[in-house]
């Protein structure tokens, strides 16, 4: 069951990211980076923990392809976004930085 949920996330999350980026639902560039970092983590976590004896590896490649589309779409969204858009910029900058540092650490473990 855990593997099914994880594989569903690997495919559904990039779709959600594509929708958020293409419909300009993200507040700023930090939001965008966090969304992409989470996508990387889902992919790597699935690669590491899913039992690939039970599930065909091409499911992961679908997630990878959709995620690459989400990355490509950032090129359209990026110029219209500011780095920070918040009433409390310091707190938001700290929070976003922390999330990205944690994501980077997890990526390093999972690679």
């Amino acid at each position: 069951m855990r593997d099914i949920i994880l594989l569903a996330l690997v495919i559904a999350y990039p779709l959600l990211a594509i929708w958020q980026i293409s419909t300009k639902r993200l507040r700023d560039r930090l939001d965008l980076l966090i969304v992409l970092a989470a996508g990387v983590l889902f992919l790597l976590f699935a690669r590491t923990t899913v039992d690939w004896q039970e599930f065909p590896p091409w499911l992961w490649l679908i997630g990878l392809g959709l995620f690459a589309v989400a990355v490509a779409l950032t090129g359209r969204a990026w110029p219209d976004l500011t780095w920070l858009s918040s009433k409390r910029p310091q707190l938001r900058a700290f929070s976003a930085t922390l999330q990205l540092v944690i994501a980077a650490a997890l990526v390093a473990i999972l690679l």
Binding site: R47, L61, L64, V69
Partner: peptide, 14 residues
Amino acid sequence: VAVAVLVGGWLIRP
């Protein structure tokens, strides 16, 4: 970057 993601992902794919 998207192409790099695809190539990198392909290399480490399950």
